[in-house]
Structure formats: C-alpha cells, structure tokens
C-alpha cells in the first residue's frame, strides 16, 4: 500500500514541478502588472532549446541554462511589447504562444531533420530531475520573500498597483515590468527544461499540452501569491498523477486527462471574484 502512495507522491511532485515554475513565473509578472498568457510558449521554448542545445553540445547542464535563457528572452519580448509598444497583453501572450510553439516545430525540422519529435538527447538524469524538483519548492519560498521584503520586490508590487506612484518616486515602472517578465520567463523556461530533459530526454510537438494555461489557473487560485500558486500547482499535479495511476482502471483516459482542466474550471467558478488581481494588472502604463 505505502509503496503505491509513495509512487503517487513522487509522481505528484514530478507532474507539479513544471507547473510550479510556470506559475511562479506568472506570479512575478502579474504582480508587476503584466498578464502573462504566454507561459505555454515559454515552457515550449525552454523545453525545445534545452533539447536542441543538449543535442549539439552533449552537455545537459549547459542545455538547461540555454532553456532558461530562451524563456528569459521570450519574457523580455513580451515585456517590451507590453511596455514600449503598449499592446494588449493577453493577445500578445496568445501570439507569443503561437510563435514559440510554431518556432519550436520549425526549428525541430531544421535541427533534427524530421518533424514531430527529436531524437533522444543527453538528459539531466535522476539526480538532475530531483534537484530541479527541490529547486522549484525553494524558488517558491525565495520569490515569496523577495516580493515581501526586498526593495526590488516592493518596486515590483508598486508597478502592479500604481505604476505612476513608482514613476513619481523616480523609478521607471516599465523597466521593472520588463525585469519581472524576464525573471518570470526564465522560471517558465526552467519548467520547460524539466519537461524535456528533466523528466524525459526528448522534445515532441505539443508536449507542453496546455500546462502553461493550467499554471495561469494556479496563479489565480493562489491569489497571485507565490506560495498560493505553488500550492495550487501541487494540487493540479496531484490530479495529473492520479490520471496516470488510474490509467489501467477502465476509466476513459480522456476523462482523467481532462480532470485538471475541469478542476480548474470548477475552481474558477468557485474562487473567482473573491481574489483581487494587482490593481494595474493588464493595464499598459503610459508616460506622457
């Protein structure tokens, strides 16, 4: 009995880890006032870049760094769009997803010569996987503290509540927002790294499977706090693990796969309206 529980527990952590990273990335961006729908694309970008770099260099740790960098770059792109060009953040995020997912599919053919999936590449191994899992939980705590007690954290929160107040105080809220998104993208990228070379050792088209959107739901559940979002991510990870475990039981696999999404919908109906997003969330800031 306990062996099965242990397996479920471990699987929960494994399934939850990419969600935690993505959700933390979402929280940081949103607290600064930028809605990040592009988490899915950042996951995919990080996942693919890691596999491509691992393939070319043979070094999994280097590949992991590359994946993080890719996520950070995508975050930067979204940040610039949201601040300098003042585009609608939600639509831009959707565009980013298409862009990143399409770009990964495109580069897949370029790098590996065939569509659909890459070859197996050097991965992070069991030790690497465990490190990333632990790191995710540590990151949750660290980000929570950073937002609460550091100067930068205060600036991020101010950028999300009233960017003009921050501007008056002599700090550029646009710069802060871009910084927050770069950090957020890096985190999501790390989540993607875990997906491709942490849990497995390859990249396949569509492997992100909507996790970026579940992470968004986790951000909302968690009331835009790092610890709350992590808890929500663990909750969803549990459902994903459950689906995997119950595969043999005759329950249609599609139903099990749909569980996290149904749970997210139910919770959005239940929780929504009570939590409040940062006041300037989603509103582009304009210097006159």
């Amino acid at each position: 009995m306990s062996g099965e529980l242990l397996a479920l527990f471990t699987l929960t952590l494994v399934k939850a880890t990419p969600l935690i990273y993505a959700a933390l990335g979402g929280v940081v961006g949103e607290r600064a006032g930028v809605v990040n729908i592009g988490l899915e694309g950042m996951l995919a970008g990080g996942a693919f870049t890691a596999v491509a770099v691992s393939y070319k260099t043979g070094s999994a740790p280097l590949a992991a760094l590359a994946g993080v960098a890719c996520g950070a770059a995508l975050g930067f792109l979204l940040g610039v769009a949201a601040t300098r060009w003042r585009v609608d953040q939600i639509v831009a995020g959707t565009g980013l997803n298409l862009l990143a997912l399409g770009g990964a599919a495109y580069a897949l053919v370029l790098v590996f010569g065939r569509p659909g999936a890459s070859f197996a590449v050097p991965a992070l191994g069991l030790r690497g996987e465990a490190t990333l899992i632990a790191l995710a939980l540590v990151a949750a705590l660290v980000i929570d503290r950073v937002l609460a007690v550091t100067s930068w954290g205060l600036h991020v929160r101010a950028a999300g509540e009233n960017p003009r107040a921050l501007d008056i105080a002599g700090i550029d809220p646009l710069r802060i927002r871009v910084q927050a998104l770069v950090l957020g993208g890096a985190l999501a990228g790390l989540g993607g790294v875990f997906l491709s070379i942490g849990e497995l050792d390859l990249y396949s088209d569509g492997m992100t499977a909507g996790r970026g959107f579940i992470a968004l739901a986790a951000v909302i559940f968690g009331r835009w706090t790092p610890l709350g979002a992590t808890g929500a991510a663990l909750f969803f990870g549990f459902f994903a693990a459950l689906q995997f475990t119950l595969q043999q039981s005759g329950i249609p696999s599609e139903l099990m796969q749909a569980l996290p999404y149904l749970a997210a919908l139910a919770a959005l109906a239940g929780f929504a309206g009570r939590a409040r997003a940062p006041a300037a969330d989603g509103i582009p800031y304009a210097r006159e």
Binding site: V149, T150, S151, L154, H155, R157, A158, E161, N162, R164, A165, L166, I168, A169, G170, I171, P278, A279
Partner: peptide, 26 residues
C-alpha cells in the same frame, strides 16, 4: 498617486527604502 494596497511607509519611502543588505529595514 498612491498605491492603495501598499502601506503608508511603503508609499512614502518608495524608491528610498532603508535597506540592510538586500532586505528593507522595516
């Protein structure tokens, strides 16, 4: 131009927070 959900001290000292290492000295 105040950030309503932040505290008085956070609004007043925004950008000039007293720090010890990296954390704000509340």
């Amino acid at each position: 131009e105040l950030a309503e959900r932040l505290r008085v001290w956070e609004n007043v000292l925004l950008g000039r927070e007293p720090c010890r290492f990296w954390t704000i000295d509340r």
